[in-house]
Every structure is written in structure tokens, then in C-alpha cells.
Design a protein around this nucleic acid. Sequence first.
DNA 1: CATGAATGAGTATTCATTCAT
DNA 2: CATGAATGAATACTCATTCAT
Lengths: 214, 214, 214, 214
Amino acid sequence: MGKVEANKIQKKNTLFATAFELFHEKGFARTTISDIVNRAGLAKGTFYLYFKDKYDIRDKLIIHKTGQLLAASHHELLKKKPASFEESILLVADFVIEKLKQDRGLLALITKNLSWGVMGTAFQKNVPEESVRFYDYYLEILNRYQISCTDPELMLFTILELVGSTACSCILYEQPVSIDAYKPYLHRVLRSTIRSFSKNQDMEESSHNKTPAT
Amino acid sequence: MGKVEANKIQKKNTLFATAFELFHEKGFARTTISDIVNRAGLAKGTFYLYFKDKYDIRDKLIIHKTGQLLAASHHELLKKKPASFEESILLVADFVIEKLKQDRGLLALITKNLSWGVMGTAFQKNVPEESVRFYDYYLEILNRYQISCTDPELMLFTILELVGSTACSCILYEQPVSIDAYKPYLHRVLRSTIRSFSKNQDMEESSHNKTPAT
Amino acid sequence: MGKVEANKIQKKNTLFATAFELFHEKGFARTTISDIVNRAGLAKGTFYLYFKDKYDIRDKLIIHKTGQLLAASHHELLKKKPASFEESILLVADFVIEKLKQDRGLLALITKNLSWGVMGTAFQKNVPEESVRFYDYYLEILNRYQISCTDPELMLFTILELVGSTACSCILYEQPVSIDAYKPYLHRVLRSTIRSFSKNQDMEESSHNKTPAT
Amino acid sequence: MGKVEANKIQKKNTLFATAFELFHEKGFARTTISDIVNRAGLAKGTFYLYFKDKYDIRDKLIIHKTGQLLAASHHELLKKKPASFEESILLVADFVIEKLKQDRGLLALITKNLSWGVMGTAFQKNVPEESVRFYDYYLEILNRYQISCTDPELMLFTILELVGSTACSCILYEQPVSIDAYKPYLHRVLRSTIRSFSKNQDMEESSHNKTPAT
DNA sequence: CATGAATGAGTATTCATTCAT
DNA sequence: CATGAATGAATACTCATTCAT
């Protein structure tokens, strides 16, 4: 029975991959189900065996790809071992930006929904197994650096909205500046955002931890 | 002849208003040009006399509505006369959020493109006269409070992306929390963002100026 | 499965027949695809499953009908068994003219493209099997009567252009005379055309009559 | 009053010229009245002041252009002064072919309607003054060379259909051969056609020549 | 005479979805 | 499970024609 089962997963993955390619090449609105099944070498009816409609496959694709992206950034984190929590977040931000810069298809797909891909699935059950739980990684990191934070999920939400939203504008339209020009500002804002969410710190103290005066 | 000209403007405005209504009621994708002209009481061809297609009227509508929204917030500012620059920005943010809460149609239209409506048109020439230049107001306010800021337009961009992006998620999907629950956090982040952009203050000093210890 | 396949051929033929009827009744320009599928009792989309557009079905129809017409004239030839090659060609010409007189729809369709329906497809591969190869019949007849002719296909081309072109004018507009009034002249011209292409009769002899040397 | 009148003729000519250009560039079906008036720099309504519709301007254009073409060929005739009637006809045929080769727009317009442009207008009254009466020239030439011919207009009709029809195929599609390859054959056929229409050669005799009794 | 804004019937074409095989 | 022929509602867009100015 594993054979049939494997075959089904294989078909689904083919559909995923093909849809992603086409959304990238032609855009979501201009991609038809015919396009997808034609290139995938499957019959039209088969599509409906696996997905409800075009929106269904897109949404699952966003979750899937966002999960993948953040899982990869977690890997990066494990490799680079940054010195502080702030550095960790900046590393993730830079990693995500770099990936989005390289992959316009991914960027167009995720658009400004970076946080949705994470937050929307963080507390749900029907999330596909493939999709990695970035939120768990995030809590782990918070813990590792002993950051106590009143509302970690709101901090993450804010960070993801900030990074996703500005990165999209800067990469896609180079408006108001290129992403490379914006990065230093983003870093600064991210740092201050993290501090404003951190517990042990009213704002005065926050700076002490980070850039210890003396 | 003023009469013909006035008639044309009148027609265009009717189309704008009707399209906005329908995008609100049925959503953009589900609204057809037929819907628009039917309700506007005009012929189909007339639509194409004024707009290239559905996307054209939407984009012009976003710019138009964003302009209106920010113009209204400027009015609010003149009325309330906040004590500081930070207070001004928070006032604008709250005002915008309140409007978006009340008007889901507007929210859906603007989605996460708040900054685009402002920044995208701030430096262009072909912006319709009706569209108000919020950016000029903003510079004026900066000036009034004697804020010196390295890159005012990047600060505004960051603020708009932050407000627009998070407000959309919180209002539209109540994800991860309601907008009312999120507001205090947003305020805090906005404050720290403004500070991190302000000149007279490198990060260490920043806290001193703002919340003078005793 | 033969069943599905047969069904497809059946549908295509229905579309052919219906389109022909309508082109006849209303003319090509005034016939819409809706007209065709409505009368054929099929869905609009089905049309596009078999033909690219209205022009596609027309072109295929011309080839189809021209083939049929000439195949029928070949039948006539086998029945009547004319005494000479010239008589054979006149018989075909008369047969074709008679058919076109009876069937204005066919005439309007073929217009002055009689030769195109034959020559255009004579040397191509993608010609539908239904379309009969008149050119082969023609060579056969040439052979039967032992006619040696330098360029048989140019002779056929000339004959077809002559017959098709003049018949259209005379039948459709009765300009400059009716086809019946023109027929004797056409016969004379066809005869002399055939002779001028025949080998055993070089140009020298023909000129004797006209511009007698000496 | 001449001024207003001249202005009207000027407008009409502009429309003619522009329509011809566009029919050439985009084809008749794809050219719209908007296209014509836009390029002509006139208002849409103005078109309807001069022509009934697109078909009207096309038909008048065909007559106009055919007239011009044949008038030019008459000029050629006066210049070259050919030795015989046959030579005259061949000269006209070659001249027409050369012009059509050089001007595809003209060719596409006239298509296979060369004879219509001449015959259709030869006996009518409402022919525009600009359009030259080729038929009169033709009779003149017949007379000059003392050709007696039973039905001169049928001879001309046959010649024009033959030249127009074959030239279109050969030039436009190079089917079945190029026009240059076909020319010698056309000449031969034209010669024999002229002879078969000439009086001194009745039908009885004509056959004698062909299949010489003795 | 000239204009060009307005019209709206008309048309081609697409494409998600179903269901018999 | 898989197929892909058939469907037909839905829609965008065109363009000849009119008529008030």
C-alpha cells in the first residue's frame, strides 16, 4: 500500500512545484488550472482530487514556502551562533531578505504576508507536517538568550510585519529606496523594537545591556 | 466649454464612487465592470473612456482614498494640536486605525499598501490634483516640532508600513490579536522607531530626551 | 476507445455542417460563434475544442468543400467518359459551374479561391483525409489521354483561376454577363489555354495563324 | 465658395489616403474607423459626413486605385507604342503585375477584384470623376489596331480576371510558383485568349488550326 | 460644417468544474 | 483512482454610430 500512498504524495508535490513555477512566471491571476495540470502532465480532474481550487493551492503554498524559508533561517542560526538575541533576529531578517531578493517568485507569492505564514499556522492543528513550526524555534531562541518578554508572539508579529512589509516594497518596486539602502535603517528599527518589547527593561536600561557603556 | 468638461469630471467621480462601493461590498475580484457601469447608470463603453481597466480604477482609487484619509488625519492634527512630534504621529496612527476599523471597504482596498499611496505619489508629477500631498504636511510637522531627522522619508515609510501592515492583520483577521489589544504595543514601537530615526539622538541618549528621568 | 473518438468526429462534423449552413444564410462576417454552437446544440467552449476561431473553421471548410466538389466532378468524369482531354476539362468546368450556380453558399465560401482549395493542399501533408486529392485525379486524366504537357500544375492553376474567378463574377453579380451567356466564351478560352500548354503544339504553330510570317 | 469646397475635397482625400495606408498596414478587418480618423486628425463624426461606412470607403478606394493603376498603364502604352494589340495587352499586364509586386497594400486591396474595378464602373454613372475610364482607352486601342472582336468587353473581362486572379496567388502566396516564374505562361495564355476572341477567327476555323485536318 | 463624448449591443474567448468512462 | 471531453456562465473589451453642442 505504501506504493499507492507514495504515488499520491508524489502527485501532490508535483502539483505544488508546478503551481509555484507558474505563479512565479505568469503571476497568480494569470495562471490557470489548465496551465498547472498541463505542465505537471496530469489530468484536469486530478487537480481537484488534491486541492479545492486555485486559492487553496496558493494558500497552502504560502504556508509551505514560508515555513521552508524560516526553517532555513533557523539552520543559518544554528550555524552562525550569534552572540545575542538581537543579533539572532537581525540574522534572520537578513537571511530572509537575501532569499527574497534572489527569488522574486517567492517574494510575489509571500507578498506582505510573511507573518501570516507563521502566525496563522502557529496555533492551528491542520498545518501540513512538511511546514515547519518556526514559532517553536523562536521561543527556543528567546529562552536560550534568557530574554524575558511580555508578549513574545506580538514581538514576533511586529518584527515579521516590519521585515516582510518593507522588504516587499524595497525589493519589488525599489520604493522609496533599494533594500540595500534601507537595511541599516531596518536594523536600527528592529533593535529598538526588540528592546521596547523586552521586559527587564524600561527603555532607559535597555541600552545598557546591548551596548554596555563602559 | 466648462459644461462638457464639468460633465466629464462628474462622470469620472461617479465611476470612482460606484467602484469603491462595489469593491467594498463584493470585493475587487468579484466586481465586474458591468456591475460598476450598471449601478453608475452609464454605458459600458463610457468606463473605458475614463479608465484602462479594472486595475487602473483600483490603483487610482487607492491613491485617491489614501490621500483623503491622510488629509483627514491632517485636519485632526490641526484640531487637536498635540504637544510633541511623537504625539502627532500616534494621533495620526490612531486616527487612521479608527477610520480603517470603521470602513472595511477602505481597509480591503488599501490592504497593506498604505505607504504606496503616500510615497508612491509623493514625488511624482502625474498625480491627480484631488490627491492630497500628505508628504508635505509631514515635513511641515517635522519642522514645526524642530525635529531633525536624517532621512525623514525613510522614517515615514517605516511608520506607514508598520501601521498599515499590522493594522490590516489585526483588523481584518484579528490575528494575532485584535487591533485594540495591539495598539499599546504599536504605540511603544512607533515611539522607539521615531527615536531611532531622530538625529540629536544616538541610541544611548535617546531615552533621556524622551522620558526625562525625574 | 472508439466510442469517445467517434463522438469527437461526430461533433466536429456537426460544427462543420452548421457553420457552412450559417455562412451561407447570413454570410461569414455576420455569423457568430454563438450562432454556430446554438444551432449545433453544443456549448460555446466545445467550438474552441475543435477550432481556433471563426477563420480556422472557414479555411478548413473551404478546403473540405473544394475537395468534395472536385471529387464529385471526378465521379461525373468516370460516368460520362468524354472523348478527349479538352472535353474532360470542359466537363469539369461545367460541372463545377452548375454546382456553384445551385449552391450560393458554396460559391460565397469558395469565392475566387477555387485554385487555393486544390493547389494549396495538393502538396501538403496535413491535409485532412476527408479532403480528396483532386490533383492526383487530374494527373491520371492527363495520362489517360496521353497528353504531354510541360507544366501540368501551372495549366491546372490557370484553368482553376479562370473558371473560379469568372464564374464568381458572372454568377454572383451577373457582371458583365450571366454565367450562361459567358459559358461559350469560357469554353473557347479554356480550349485555347489547354492547347497553349500542350507540348506537341509549340508556339511557332500557334503564331502562324495570328501573325503570319511573310 | 471655392475655399469651402476645396476644403471638403481635401478632407475626403485625406480620409482616402489614411484609410489606404491603414488597410495596407493592418488589413481591412483590423482597421477601425477610429484608427482612420485619429491618424487623419479629424473627428469621428466627420468620417460619416463623407462615407457611409467602412465598406463604402473600401469600395470607393478599390475603384479609385484600380482606375489610377490602369490610367498609369495607359500612359505606359502611349510611351512605349507597342507594335500590335497583343503586345499592348501584354504590356498592360506586365505593368499591372509590376505595380502590384511593388505595392502589397494595393494588391491586398484589389485582391482578385481587378475586373470589378474596371467593369463594375465602366457602364455606371455614379463613378467619381477622379476614377479614370479604362474601358474607353481599351476600346480606343482595339480600334487603333483595327482589331475586330465580337465581344470586346468579355475579352477584357476574361483578361482582367486571368491577370488579377493569377497575379494575386503568385505574388501574395507564391503559390503555385512565383509571379516571375509564371509570367511566360501567362503571356502565352493571354495571347491565345486574345486570338480566341478575335473575329477573323471563328470557332469553326479555330479548331482547324488546332487539329489541322490535312 | 465639424466635433468627440456617449452609447450599448455585440462578440470572442476563457476557465473552473463536472462526470461518464 | 485517474482521466479529459464537455460544459456554459461569466467577462472583458470593441467599435460603429449618433447627436448635442
